[in-house]
Design a protein around this nucleic acid. Structure first.
Lengths: 224, 224
DNA sequence: GTACATTTCAAACACCTGTTTAAATTTGTG
DNA sequence: CACAAATTTAAACAGGTGTTTGAAATGTAC
């Protein structure tokens, strides 16, 4: 019984690191099992398939994170008056940082995994997350909607996805960016620093005035 | 001589569509050559390797786009007073839409390819673009810097990369997003519409006030 | 029309992928 | 201890990958 737990855990630990670094598609089961020092067949024995392993790796974090987020969202929703957008976004910070208790560097790894998840395997994980945690995320959308009542629903949809892109891309290429930042500005950057830098950017973008552009589209296409 | 150009073109056309749809890593040379109706070995004969094919596919667009952007940047730099940030960003719209003259749906395909390029093969294409067009892009950074003199250089660095993430992610998952938008808000979305929606979001995010967050980081980590 | 260079083609190469099998081993339990 | 269930193991599987080869076909120039 101990051995089983041990093997599963070793696989999960090895898998999450490699997945975060190299992406899901570009990490082979042989790399994982060799780093975990277990037999190749162990993955299929314990998890069924690579796809299910990927989901198991994410579940370890999603279960904890989403439960915490749900609490926070409920608290904010209980407030009588709409919340400030920055406050709504800031609600993510604490639960995300608490993922460090799930695992060493849990926050960084989870966010990188999330990034990989949305860029590597477009359909499969998007569906998985939405299926299991769609209701929690709907509360978030509602909160943002309340804090930006002037925004049309379709505009909000796009801007929330723009924001998802910002987060996901930043986290997927987090290491590369941190290296450049250190080299060019000699500033140490941890995951917490990145999150703190992200918030004002996202808040301003989401709440930006809806603007009909300087040059209307039709004019651009026809040229001069 | 006509046959050679024809084969190369057929390969490039087939490759760009498949790359944009499925990503670079998940598109095989056999898929490409079969869609292009040429022999499998043709790719290696004409381009050398898959890696060089990827670069050739991007070059077709980058060459045109970067030349146009360079003009626009030079024009703006020649102005005596700093330009408005939105104006600086809007400079991308026209050159991007002109890529439709390189190829049918050129703009959409190029932006999707760019998205794939930054998420699929992290290192290799990032280097390629920066090596060939770093000087052009430096002018852009300078323009943004002039239009946002209050922003520290390191903050600008992060925000420009956040913006790159927004663009790249949006374009990589453009089709999925457009489908949802159509289903939920019954609004037709073309690539031009997405660009127009992006601009105010990006401009607001980049120019956001530098904000020390509501809850300081140290307090968060220690908990209560 | 012969000679040369370019381009196409089918086949094979060596390697990697996720998954399965069946035997060997370890483990928990009566 | 002995029996049975759970786990580990090495080996093979079927299929896919990018790349290379050498002969066949095509085009070009004298």
């Amino acid at each position: 019984m101990v051995a089983k737990q041990n093997t599963q855990q070793k696989i999960l630990d090895a898998a999450q690191s490699l997945f975060a670094e190299t992406g899901f598609n570009d990490t082979s089961l042989r790399q994982i099992t060799s780093l975990a020092e277990v037999n190749l067949a162990a993955v299929n024995y314990h998890f069924g398939s690579k796809k299910e392993l990927i989901q198991a790796v994410l579940q370890r974090y999603l279960r904890v994170l989403m439960a915490r987020l749900d609490q926070e969202f409920n608290n904010l929703l209980a407030a009588q008056q709409p919340n400030n957008l920055t406050q709504v976004l800031a609600v993510f910070v604490k639960p995300l940082l608490e993922l460090n208790s799930v695992n060493n560097n849990g926050t960084r790894i989870f966010l990188q995994l999330l990034g990989r998840g949305y860029t590597d395997v477009q359909g499969h994980l998007r569906w998985f997350i939405n299926y299991h945690y769609g209701r929690v995320l709907d509360k978030f959308v509602l909160l943002v909607q309340q804090s930006c009542p002037q925004l049309p629903a379709s505009e909000l949809f796009w801007r929330l996805h723009f924001s998802l892109g910002t987060i996901v891309f930043t986290m997927a290429s987090n290491e590369a960016l941190a290296e450049i930042a250190e080299a060019d500005f000699s500033e140490e950057v941890d995951i917490e620093g990145v999150i703190q830098r992200l918030l004002p950017y996202l808040a301003a973008g989401i709440a930006a005035p809806v603007f009909t552009c300087l040059q209307p589209a039709a004019q651009l296409r026809s040229g001069t």
